[in-house]
């Protein structure tokens, strides 16, 4: 019954998603064109000087001299044919640039998310064991700090401590450039580079999971099935993991889907601090350079990914909690 319902849920979501994507594309286009200046201004500014004739020729070549609605129609037509355009500033098709950067972002994002969920859940469980005890308060304070302190500051401090003073870990980059490693050595090298940025990101996100897990577990405090489990002699950890934690999974999955979306673009500062070659920086640089083709492409593909992630989350929720099916 549950599993059979899944395709229907997915299909319904897909149909519902299409107008949303169209709306996103339109909004992106409008908002970006409200910014003063265009990519030709930036190119001319960077090149030192330019004649108005040359700038006009560039605008013509890039299609920036067309009326805005025509540019928009062109953009939509290209989008429907899955043409994401060309970045004139980077001299590369947008899709290539996106795909080049995607693995780095996914690696960082998924690692950070996994760390955040595992550590956050553990902290939440510890806090929920004895509510309002010193341990609970300790965890609360810790979580509050991790949520409140800007992540790039954590990043810089981590560099100062672990790279500059202790020399344990590299301060940035994704692999040791020029080392030409392969196999396990490459994996180790990658892991060493991943530790600091992933932890830095995770520190921020784990706060939400800790709070979520603690709250949900406390709600279950007097629940009958928990008392039943205790009555049959299950230890506290067993009760927590086998019985109580299952109830946390659905909200956890929802929250994770939500946060994955924000991670996709939200890691700009951490990527910058650790010179991680990810999507956030690509998008950020594109904003400064008014490289709208690139930016529109990145935003659109990201929004497609986010939509897919949301659908995945919904599907997961249905699997985790059959009651959700009726809601979907």
């Amino acid at each position: 019954m549950t599993r059979a319902a899944l395709p229907r849920v997915v299909l319904r979501r897909v149909v519902r998603t299409l107008p949303v994507l169209l709306g996103i594309a339109t909004l992106n286009f409008i908002i970006l064109h409200l910014a003063p200046g265009d990519v030709v201004d930036v190119l001319a500014g960077e090149s030192g000087a330019s004649t108005p004739e040359y700038m006009a020729a560039l605008r013509h070549e890039f299609g920036l001299d067309l009326p805005l609605y025509e540019q928009f129609l062109r953009y939509l037509t290209n989008l429907l044919q899955l043409h994401f355009g060309f970045s004139y500033r980077q001299n590369q098709p947008v899709l290539n640039l996106f795909i080049d950067r995607l693995p780095a972002t996914l690696l960082l994002m998924l690692t950070a998310m996994a760390l955040a969920i595992v550590i956050g859940t553990l902290l939440g469980m510890i806090a929920a064991r004895r509510p309002h005890s010193w341990l609970d308060h300790g965890v609360s304070v810790l979580v509050l700090i991790s949520y409140a302190v800007p992540s790039f500051w954590f990043g810089l401090m981590a560099i100062v401590v672990f790279s500059v003073h202790l020399h344990w870990l590299p301060s940035g980059g994704m692999v040791t450039i020029g080392a030409n490693l392969s196999g396990p050595a490459l994996l180790l090298d990658l892991t060493r580079h991943l530790v600091l940025p992933a932890s830095t990101l995770a520190i921020f996100y784990l706060a939400v999971y800790a709070r979520l897990v603690r709250g949900t577990l406390l709600q279950l405090h007097g629940a009958e099935f928990i008392r039943a489990a205790r009555a049959k002699g299950a230890g506290e950890w067993r009760v927590a993991i086998n019985h109580a934690l299952r109830n946390v999974l659905a909200p956890l999955a929802t929250m994770a889907g939500f946060q994955l979306a924000s991670l996709l673009s939200g890691a700009v500062l951490v990527e910058s601090v650790f010179s991680w070659p990810g999507l956030g920086r690509l998008a950020f640089d594109a904003i400064l350079a008014r490289d709208f083709n690139l930016l529109l492409g990145v935003l659109f593909i990201s929004s497609v990914l986010v939509t897919l992630l949301n659908m995945g989350t919904d599907a997961l929720c249905v699997l985790l909690d059959p009651r959700m099916e009726r809601l979907a």
Binding site: F152, L156, I159, G172, G178, V273, S275
Partner: peptide, 22 residues
């Protein structure tokens, strides 16, 4: 034998990379 140009966008991180012999 060669030259490697590294892109480190954050000024403080660049400082740290030079101090850390990277």
């Amino acid at each position: 034998d060669g030259v490697i140009f590294r892109f480190i966008p954050d000024p403080s991180a660049r400082t740290a990379a030079l101090e850390n012999n990277e």
